[in-house]
Amino acid sequence: MAKRQPRDTLPTHIAQWRDQVRRDYGIEDAPGLILLEQAALALHRAEQARELLAKDGLVTRDRFDQPKPHPAAVIARDAEASFRAALRDLQLDVEPARPVGRPPGV
């Protein structure tokens, strides 16, 4: 029998965000709950990557001592994109609504 991978444990503030979004938007269906969990995990991954970047810096050195982008920068970028995609799939507003038409005074 194969061992199950341990589930990621979300920090309290992200779990509270997930639960608040579930309540605010009435997300109760299985696909919606899965998407919301994916969004929360992506948010957690992005946060972890940003913490690593804050500690190590944006640039690291390869085996030839040449500067290269820190791998955590890619992780942060991908996790943030996954977070936005999950919110879009849940059909939650990602950007504030803008009024239709030209801006006033133009």
Rank of each mutant, 00 (worst) to 15 (best):
A72S: 04
I75T: 11
V74A: 12
I75N: 00
R63T: 09
A79V: 03
R61D: 00
H70N: 14
A81P: 03
H70M: 07
A73V: 11
F64K: 10
D65A: 08
R61H: 10
E80S: 08
R61C: 03
D65R: 13
D62N: 10
D65S: 11
A85L: 09
A86M: 05
D65G: 00
K68S: 13
A79R: 06
L87I: 09
V59M: 14
Q66D: 12
A76K: 08
A73R: 01
F83D: 00
P69I: 08
R61L: 07
P69F: 14
V59D: 06
T60G: 08
F83P: 00
T60N: 04
Q66P: 03
D65E: 13
S82Q: 15
Q66E: 14
A81G: 04
D78C: 05
I75Y: 06
V74G: 07
A85K: 02
A79N: 04
K68D: 06
A86L: 07
V59K: 04
F64S: 07
Q66H: 11
F83Q: 00
R61E: 04
A76R: 06
K68I: 15
A81K: 10
R77G: 00
A79E: 02
R84V: 07
L58N: 01
L58D: 06
R63V: 03
D65Y: 11
A81I: 03
A73Q: 13
D62P: 00
A79D: 03
K68V: 15
D65N: 07
A85W: 07
R77E: 14
V74I: 09
P69Y: 12
A79T: 01
D62M: 02
E80R: 03
F83L: 01
P69S: 13
A81Y: 01
A81F: 04
A73G: 13
K68W: 08
R63N: 09
F64P: 00
A76G: 05
A76H: 08
D78A: 01
R63S: 11
A79K: 06
D78F: 05
H70A: 04
L87M: 13
H70V: 06
A81S: 08
L58E: 00
R84L: 12
V59N: 05
A86S: 04
Q66K: 12
V74M: 09
S82A: 14
F64T: 01
R84Q: 05
V59I: 12
A85S: 09
K68E: 11
R77K: 12
R84P: 00
F83W: 10
A76M: 09
E80P: 09
E80D: 15
R63G: 01
L58G: 02
